[in-house]
Amino acid sequence: MTLTRLLKTREAMLAVAIALMLALIASRFPAFVAPGNLVAVFNDTAPLIILALGQMVVILTRCIDLSVAATLALTGMVVAMLNLALPDLPVAAILAVAVALGCGLGMVNGLLVWKLDIPPIVVTLGTMTIYRGTAFLISGGKWVNAHEMSDAFKAFPRAQILGLPVMSWIAILVVVLLAVLLSRTETGRAFYAAGGNPDAATYAGIDVGRTRFLAFALSGALAGLVGYLWVARYAVAYVDLAAGFELDVVAACVIGGVAIMGGVGSVAGAVLGALFLGVIKNALPVINVSPFWQMAISGAAIIIAVILNAKAGRTRGRIILRQAEAAR
């Protein structure tokens, strides 16, 4: 790929936009771009990065998962209560429970989409309330607070390895795994094929419904993982945890150039989309803008991004005239 083409990609544009934003902030508030603060920003954005990657896989297959934040909340509540009941349960077991439970919740979405052919938006709007409601049912609406959680439970995401918290390392690991999965496995390519051209995918021997199911399972598993990390890092679990976060996740994908009609998207794009939002969120208090601006900014970013995506994806006609073909 030539350099000029590389620079025209969505990923490059986003990276430049983030760099410009950082430079602009640094010109007034140099402390913001100090390495320590950048690590903090990345660490703060880690959950969004992980969830955006799961969401991207779902959107690649022409679906959408609005239940991620609710899955996160339910899983977070379950592991917090599990820790409350069995304080000696090792973190590895907690992680396994979180991922398995999230994966199961995602599979419920996936089964409804695959086997009953219900539109994904309806399925996940429904399960979004059901999952969050279940979190209320099992907790009775009570919070699990910091002092009720075991030290090991709380310490895991914050432990530092090579100057970076485990939370950040996990995000990096997920990025690497997803990059390999999407580019180097048949399943990964099937996500693109099933969303890009479902009919052709069927001809190529890909089961589109099953591929969608796998995407939801993956998205759920990642949401479950974040459920534990979130609850442990902030040392609190409650029903409204991460309420409305699904919108940020979708926003990160759309900003990252993931096409809502499926088939288009890259790991780098989704990560940069998440970082774009993460930098804004962390910069607002620094530049003395009320955090209440964040919601409107995400909304505006979604709209601008979807307009840009649509411009890029315009289809051409049949092109019958010979000189028209030559001129192209």
Binding site: Y192, A193, G196, N197
Partner: peptide, 18 residues
């Protein structure tokens, strides 16, 4: 042409039997 616009040329050729 029943192909995939968003995969690379090589992936289009070998999808399913890479």
């Amino acid at each position: 042409t029943v192909l995939f616009d968003d995969l690379t040329v090589a992936e289009n050729i070998f999808l399913g039997h890479a």
